[in-house]
């Protein structure tokens, strides 16, 4: 399945994350997953919300730069080794992953999200 993610540019300045989250809560957007990739000078916040269109509008209005990306999402059993075997298969097929993260949903299943430059092929392989 494809999951839409919003990436937000965050300059390295105190209170930026707080301001960003404030813009989302003011717009009534619920954040389901939040993940920060940071460097010495800036960060990229990756979020998934209950209404990404509304979130992008609210963030743009508050002066944030955003980029929308589709990630491939797979549900795996919450037991040891289940992610390893899936990633092993993608690796053998030569699918390159830019980054991976997970978030747990209610009900014992973990959702693994990953960014790849070949979404179509990854999806086919995972069917």
């Amino acid at each position: 399945m494809l999951v839409n993610q919003i990436a937000v540019f965050l300059e390295n300045r105190q209170g930026r994350l707080y301001t960003m989250l404030g813009a989302l809560s003011d717009a009534g957007v619920n954040v389901e997953s939040l993940n920060i990739a940071d460097t010495k000078d800036f960060g990229i916040v990756r979020i998934i919300t209950d209404d990404n269109a509304k979130a992008v509008a609210a963030l743009s209005a508050a002066g944030f730069t955003t980029a929308s990306t589709n990630l491939v999402g797979i549900e795996v059993d919450d037991v040891p080794g289940s992610l390893t075997s899936t990633l092993g298969m993608l690796n053998n097929e030569g699918v390159n992953l830019e980054y991976v993260y997970s978030y747990s949903r209610k009900g014992g299943k973990a959702l693994i999200l990953f960014k790849t430059d070949d979404v179509k092929r990854a999806e086919e392989l995972l069917k």
Partner: peptide
């Protein structure tokens, strides 16, 4: 804004 990406690598 158009060149902003979700990947640190590209921005760097």
């Amino acid at each position: 804004p158009e060149v902003f990406s979700d990947e640190v690598k590209k921005i760097e």
